[in-house]
């Protein structure tokens, strides 16, 4: 009945060093090989912006860009991340200046509790990198793996469409 993540019950391994690239910088984290990247980010690197939502890869709160693709970090073992690029919500700003999506989200006040927004910003960033000028239906499709419980969907969609019209970054 209980729905627990597979890694939690897999045979225990000893901690090892893993070299992972996060927001353009290399870090060595020491943890068990099947530890999800989410815990390495939040616990070992102190990057708290990536959120725990379900641990099952179902809600999108923990999305990071993994080689440019929105990917649940709760479901991504640290061994598989070594040698790849990870971008978290903290990596979206440039020299402390918020990205156009972050600016547009602020302008549209596109959140209530804001807990799901890190993952939504990650999905939206990937969308605009691939499709600079999406229509509303495409924005909704691109965000469909991200759950928002407060009901900020309309504002989020407006903010993404607005960001697409802004100057980069």
């Amino acid at each position: 009945m209980s729905d627990s993540p597979a890694w939690a019950g897999s045979p225990l391994t000893e901690p090892e060093d893993f070299d992972i690239e996060v927001n353009g910088e290399h870090h060595v984290v020491t943890c068990r090989r099947d530890t999800p990247v989410l815990y390495a980010l939040r616990g070992d690197l102190g990057l708290k912006g990536t959120r725990f939502g379900c641990g099952l890869g179902q809600c999108g709160a923990c999305f990071v860009l993994f080689d440019g693709h929105p990917t649940p970090s709760c479901d991504l073992p640290v061994w598989a991340a070594a040698g790849h690029s990870i971008v978290t919500v903290e990596g979206l700003a440039t020299d402390g200046r918020p990205s156009r999506l972050q600016r547009a989200f602020t302008e549209e006040q596109a959140a209530q509790c804001g807990y799901c927004m890190s993952g939504i910003l990650i999905s939206a960033t990937a969308l605009l990198q691939q499709e600079p000028d999406p229509d509303e239906a495409r924005v909704r499709e691109a965000l469909d793996r991200n759950l928002c419980r407060c009901g900020s969907h309309g504002r989020v969609v407006r903010a993404v469409l607005k960001a697409a019209k802004m100057e980069t970054p």
């Binding site: 708290k48 978290t88 700003a93 602020t106 959140a111 807990y115 927004m117």
Partner: peptide, 11 residues
């Protein structure tokens, strides 16, 4: 909201 969009610790 600025903290929440930047991913700064707040929760």
């Amino acid at each position: 909201l600025p903290d929440k969009f930047a991913g700064r610790p707040r929760f």
